[in-house]
Amino acid sequence: MASTEGALTGTGYINHHLTNLTFGRFPEGHWGFAHGAEEAASMGFMAIHVDSMAWSLGLGIIMFLIFRSIAKGFSVDKPSKVQCAVESLFEMAQDSKDGTFTKQAENLWIAPMALTIFVWVFFMNLMDLIPVDWLPTAAALLNGESWSSISAHGAQTYMKVVPSTDVNIALGTALGVFLMIIYYSLKMKGPIGFTKELTLQPFGPYLVPFNLLLELVALLAKPLSLGLRLFGNMYAGELIFILIAMMYSAGLGLGVLGGFAQLGWAIFHILVITLQAYIFMMLTIVYLSQAHEAH
């Protein structure tokens, strides 16, 4: 909460929900956790969102634990339901890759990467469906705050549980994709081929600077659109969940209405989070297939 002493306000509530638990270097030079959004902003780049990173890594680890346990207990004759679900995920990743890539551009990394992206992003988005106050309140209680203090003034501990609503997480994943685009462009076309692609089209060799400008914008737009699309969708969805949650403190009538609104929005969001994960995966495959092909 921005104002540590005041009563719980709507603005404070929203700000609390949208502020990450930030660990970083203060302008004065020492390291520590930020107390509030302003302090976090003052740290600049030398800070890390502990909550986003922890949830992101934790969800990724959970994903791999599930995959490993399925792979170990793989039953040829009697597949369990979870195994069937995981298998269809693997097949979806493989099919998406096979459908986009041309046959000669064989790359064994693409399908595993597509699977990782889809499931990981889906898991991160899935955190959106957990009611917005549960985990932050639990974190505040674990941090030693009392229940009465939390309900009177709002929680003081920052805990943002949906990693994909953190622009760093969304853009960081997209940056990983971007590095792969650069790597495979250089590997498949060679430095000269890649440079030619960036400079000699679309307008031929006489307009090299203009071509370079266009192509660089197109190249940089790929990770930006990838990351910001995910971030924007998830951030907006999360914000609406927070606004709906505020209705609970506004009397019985609005509270009941809020309950229905939250249910409806959550059901709709099941679609959104799956779609966003799928779009992220498909666009990654498309970008990488473009990186593999000479124009």
Binding site: P112, L115, N168
Partner: peptide, 28 residues
């Protein structure tokens, strides 16, 4: 704020992709 989380997530992404390719994909 854009901060080091960006780099951390990129590294985590690379590690997860590597891990998936190395340990999860082949047995499955």
């Amino acid at each position: 704020n854009i901060n080091a989380t960006l780099i951390g997530q990129t590294i985590a992404f690379g590690l997860f992709v590597w891990f998936c390719k190395r340990y999860v994909w082949p047995p499955m």
